[in-house]
Design a protein around this nucleic acid. Structure first.
Lengths: 217, 217
DNA sequence: TATAACTTGAACAGTCCTGTACGACTTAGT
DNA sequence: ACTAAGTCGTACAGGACTGTTCAAGTTATA
């Protein structure tokens, strides 16, 4: 069984040289990817049958467009990442690094919350390398912001940049889990994450910034 | 062996809750639980056949002692938690809360690292409630420490205690993943976690503590 | 030593999933 | 309007795992 390299490239935006698909085929593919994102978002173990049914499409049709389960998961994940990138594009990351990071968190944790279960599915089906590649966009964004903040003295430099990126995502991720478990409300999540991360990133010796204006508890 | 076989057996509706087991039966059970912890630790989807084989026991024997896959996972998880509790019992959590927390992290993150994949298996097989109960011991420990630190002014009080517990575990957990992914070395993990969490828990307005003596990189 | 508890492999039943093949039908594009 | 592309249901082949049963052998323990 060969890797469908053309398929991957196609999903990642590159123009394919093969014959253009018919309109109804594109519609089917879109419905499948969308349904996959929804189904896998609710249950990472959702079968291809479920996904096809949710897409309002025959199971055979699904196989006509995707050679394997992995391809479906990949497409759904790619789609979610692309959507996320579009949202993050609208966030202003200039100006005071602390405020910029707060803005990033406010937009970002919702995305993490939505893609939570989908990511779980991807981690089972896709290689770690593939997942890393898919996340390259968001990672680069926050990495650049943190690097600038470090250069300006706003963030600590005694910890590796990669570790700080990791901490940010870990805290957002765990907040999403807490919400799902009913131990945290959506209203407080942004504030808690921001307060926690800004403190964690404060250079040693400097005072932790006071919280903006969120409810304390 | 602190984990009580009879205890969870009763909870999960297993047979023979009263009869005393023969010595060889107890030996088999122990081998199965141990093998389950190892197998599930490497692959959360390990089948009962694999586990039985790893335990040097027939598959039928496994079913003679555990009614379902869930019971096996539960037993393995209980065992891991008990082992962890034993280790944590040796950690001195008195004195300066910051130093106590650092000691807890140093001991705790190794445990999280070891039980990482096993927890993943448990999260698929067991109810969220059951997992919460199993973690009650460690959670209570760190909760008490954080509460004391807050009372003494060492830790911030503008965030819920439960959230802080969650952050601590999330950061330790993500460090374990980073190590597994090869993006972090075991030597640095303790230092990074401690530096991050101590900063995150510092009361707003107060300076972030300088790192102890770990290599900064 | 007697016996009940334990272990074992083989084999069975049942379920769910993936992936493929077919033939007939419907639709899009030029 | 014509044809290729797309779709659909059904059906099949194959695999993996769970859980149970059975009959025969082994071992702990009183």
């Amino acid at each position: 069984m060969l890797y469908d390299l053309l398929g991957y490239g196609e999903r990642m935006g590159s123009k394919n040289s093969t014959a253009t698909k018919r309109a109804d085929a594109l519609r089917s593919i879109d419905a499948i990817v969308q349904a996959a994102a929804e189904c896998l978002g609710q249950n990472p173990e959702a079968s291809l049958s479920e996904i096809a049914r949710a897409a309002g499409v025959g199971r055979v049709t699904l196989y006509a467009h995707f050679a394997s389960r992995a391809e479906v998961v990949d497409a759904a994940m790619s789609r979610a990442i692309d959507r996320g990138n579009e949202v993050l594009d609208t966030v202003d990351l200039s100006g005071d690094p602390l405020l910029a990071l707060a803005r990033y968190i406010e937009a970002g944790w919702h995305l993490v919350d939505q893609a939570r279960a989908l990511l779980a599915a991807a981690q089972r089906e896709l290689s770690a390398e593939r997942i890393r590649v898919l996340h390259a966009g968001p990672s680069a964004r926050v990495e650049a912001l943190l690097a600038r903040g470090r250069a300006e003295g706003a963030f600590r430099t005694d910890l590796p940049l990669a570790w700080m990126v990791n901490v940010l995502h870990a805290v957002m991720h765990s907040a999403a889990e807490e919400i799902r478990a009913g131990r945290l409300t959506s209203e407080h999540a942004g504030h808690h994450i921001t307060a926690t991360v800004l403190a964690a990133f404060t250079p040693p010796g400097q005072p932790v910034p006071e919280a903006g204006g969120g409810a304390p508890r």
